[in-house]
Design a protein around this nucleic acid. Structure first.
Lengths: 123, 123
DNA sequence: CTCCTTAAGTATCGTTTAGAAACCACGTTG
DNA sequence: CAACGTGGTTTCTAAACGATACTTAAGGAG
């Protein structure tokens, strides 16, 4: 079976669209440290709205990357956990965030340089 | 210096927002195979619009991940290439796309299972 | 001479999506 | 009694996206 991420209708491309998303990555990374409840996740992943969090979790659940477990307590408790399949992704996500941390200074310097040049040109 | 990708205003989080984008990933991956001109890139990365391609390239250039070189031919020729800094990212992106290709069958099966259950519940 | 083409974009739309905030049931707590 | 926490859905608005048309400038077809 031949896959091609550049092809618009290739399944791997669709999957990449799902994974290459800031919220999905952050959520998976957070869940890789241990299962979590909805609101805890919401507090930890700063800036995500309830709507988007539930949407992304639903998609990740559909893809078999996280599980959703409901406990009939009052109020209801819902626990999200990463699946073994999802776990196989976490090292890659960790590599990406590690890269971001390590190379942040270079990026910020490149931005200053770019913005400086842009300003000079604009003047 | 302490970074935290979960924090909304952390530089690494902003960088992750930039990288964790389907177009940015695909473009960087494509450029990791060699420099390319604008329209070739547009044809290769299926489904991207001119507007978004130029926007994403501009941001990647600002971040120092790609270079843009203009040749004063007629019509003008513009060549995009990945920088050494950008090259250090390609292995991670390659890992992600490889993961997508390898695990696609599991994902698709999970989706079928999920959709089947959803249908049963709806009935 | 006029129309058409290429290249690498910009400008302008209409539509989709994301995000902020309100609302929901439910039982507990002050 | 009013407010709070849970895990969401609904509503509304603002931002992003995608499709199309336009731009500049030179070369070729008719």
């Amino acid at each position: 079976m031949e896959f091609n991420v550049y092809a618009e209708n290739c399944p791997t491309r669709m999957l990449l669209d799902r994974l290459a998303d800031k919220w999905a990555m952050l959520i998976l990374k957070r869940l890789s440290d241990g299962k979590m409840r909805f609101n805890q996740l919401r507090r930890d992943v700063e800036g995500i709205s309830q709507k988007v969090l539930s949407q992304v979790l639903k998609k990740l659940e559909r893809d078999g990357l996280v599980t959703r477990t409901v406990f009939p307590t009052v109020p209801v408790t819902v626990e999200y956990a990463i699946t073994p399949l999802g776990q196989t992704l976490t090292s890659t996500i960790a590599a990406l965030t590690l890269w971001a941390e390590e190379n942040m200074p270079h990026i910020m310097e490149a931005q200053r340089r770019y913005d400086g040049v842009a300003l000079t040109e604009a003047a």
